[in-house]
Design a protein around this nucleic acid. Structure first.
Length: 458
DNA sequence: GCATGATCATGC
DNA sequence: GCATGATCATGC
């Protein structure tokens, strides 16, 4: 601990959040190298540890001892210091990643400790956050990053307090019911249970439960973007009062209820809009109109993907569901946990289901959905197969009937997902690590799998 | 009628 | 210009 003697020379009043804030604001437009005795590049290179910026900020600028105390960094002021990188492009700040708050203690929660929101360790540590954000550039060492945004962020009293509380309670409830291993980040809206490292929580702590991989309470990247927008006032963000004291899932589902059984034409009339039916995103556009701006904003901040499914008369979806194409080189280099597909199947979904009857299309139902744990394991297999094939130089392309066929997994190979072309046209290529060209590919959820999901939900 | 390769319309 | 969110088109 820093002695009282030391604290008198800190340059700020360690008991006062406003004093700490004004001292912190002097960081703006500077680097740690400018303002402190933080050691330069060499030490950085030797250290592979992430978060050196945060550690140096605490030590060399704020004069705090790095300790493993589980409370907030500025103990007396009940203030937690969080530093994070932002991309700076075209005059705009973009969130680089989620912000992890504190690691989830499965054991404590499972054993029914720390389960009251008001008294929670989470709130004790994170209610008052001092954000120090710096411009992230890959080639620039941590001490030379330019600090660009410094401000306080408070949970209690904020517009999204209720949403965060709901998220926290959902995660805690799931852990209490013995399902820690089934958590995914996308099950909640702003505060997610995000994977933290690859370790499993030692089984000895939870003898009667399957081991769960470590997770931390974290603001989702999309929510971090909202925080940045609000702090920098680069964009006005507001949920309106629509979700105040209400369950946002139910509010959103209710918006769709009055359109059940109507054709798309009838919905357009009812909403007094005219949309281009030729657009491939026509149904997506209709659904966006039903959602309205506030709900649309919430879904995007919560990183919930709205997906359209059109059922044929026999109940099978007309199409499988695509995700953005992947870059082969990335798939080859990444691990499952850091892959795009992992993040895509961990996120939340909002399905809007239409039913085709004859030449007409009727709106049927909506539901929120997360991919169940076992199915995510199946998705992992598809990804791993793809990863191995690319990495081992085993991708084969044959030309037949004027079309290119490859040996990635198809929709009959697993029950959840497959790999399929997702290019713009025949000349939209990706390049394999061995230099060979291949039409851009992406991961898709199988139509049959979607049929099962639609049958079980909504 | 399903599986799969190919391609389209739009927004940013 | 390109990514996204999809649908189109065809062979088996």
């Amino acid at each position: 601990m820093v002695s009282l003697m030391g604290k008198e020379t800190l340059g700020y009043d360690f008991k006062s959040r406003s004093s700490i804030l004004s001292y912190a604001k002097r960081l703006i437009n500077h680097t740690l190298l400018d303002l402190t005795d933080a050691p330069k590049v060499k030490e950085m290179r030797n250290s592979r540890k992430k978060g050196i910026f945060g550690q140096f900020l605490e030590k060399y600028y704020f004069g705090l001892d790095i300790n493993s105390d589980s409370g907030p960094d500025f103990k007396e002021a009940k203030l937690e210091l969080k530093s994070t990188g932002v991309f700076y492009k075209n005059g705009k700040f973009k969130a680089k990643e989620r912000v992890s708050l504190n690691q989830i203690n499965f054991k404590d929660i499972y054993q029914l400790r720390n389960i009251d929101w008001e008294k929670s360790h989470f709130l004790f540590k994170n209610n008052h956050i001092l954000f120090v954000m710096y411009k992230y550039e890959k080639e620039v060492s941590e001490v030379q990053r330019e600090i660009c945004l410094v401000d306080l962020w408070e949970i209690i009293g904020s517009e999204e307090e209720d949403l965060i509380k709901n998220d926290w309670e959902y995660i805690v409830k799931k852990i209490k019911s013995g399902k820690a291993h089934e958590l995914s980040e996308g099950e909640t809206l702003l505060l997610g249970a995000a994977r933290k490292g690859n370790e499993k929580v030692p089984g000895k702590y939870l003898p009667d439960l399957p081991g769960a991989k470590k997770r931390a309470f974290a603001f989702k990247q999309t929510y971090v973007q909202t925080i940045i927008d609000k702090l920098s006032q680069q964009q006005k963000v507001s949920f309106g009062n629509e979700f105040k004291k209400k369950n946002p899932h139910i509010v959103i589902e209710n918006k769709f209820k009055k359109f059940k059984g109507l054709t798309c034409n009838e919905i357009e009339k009812k909403l007094n809009i005219v949309l281009n039916k030729k657009a491939k995103s026509y149904y997506h556009h209709i659904a966006e109109k039903i959602l309205g701006d506030d709900a649309k904003t919430l879904l995007s901040i919560a990183n919930v993907q709205m997906k359209i499914i059109r059922l044929q008369e026999n109940g099978t979806p007309k199409e499988s569901m695509s995700f953005p194409y992947f870059k082969s080189v990335e798939v080859a280099e990444q691990s499952w946990d850091e892959s795009d597909f992992f993040n895509q199947v961990e996120q939340g979904f909002f399905f809007v289901v239409f039913q085709i009857r004859g030449s007409k299309v009727f709106f049927d139902k909506v539901f929120f959905w997360n991919m169940p744990y076992l199915d995510r394991l199946e998705a992992e297999k598809v990804w791993t197969h793809t990863h191995n094939l690319i990495k081992s130089n085993g991708v084969k392309i044959v030309r037949k009937n004027n079309k290119n066929y490859n040996n990635f997994l198809g929709s009959k190979d697993t029950k959840v997902a497959h790999v399929r072309p997702h290019g713009k046209n025949g000349s939209d290529y990706d390049v394999l690590p061995n230099g060979k060209k291949i039409g851009k590919q992406g991961f898709w959820l199988n139509a049959k799998y979607l049929k099962k999901i639609v049958g079980e939900n909504g």
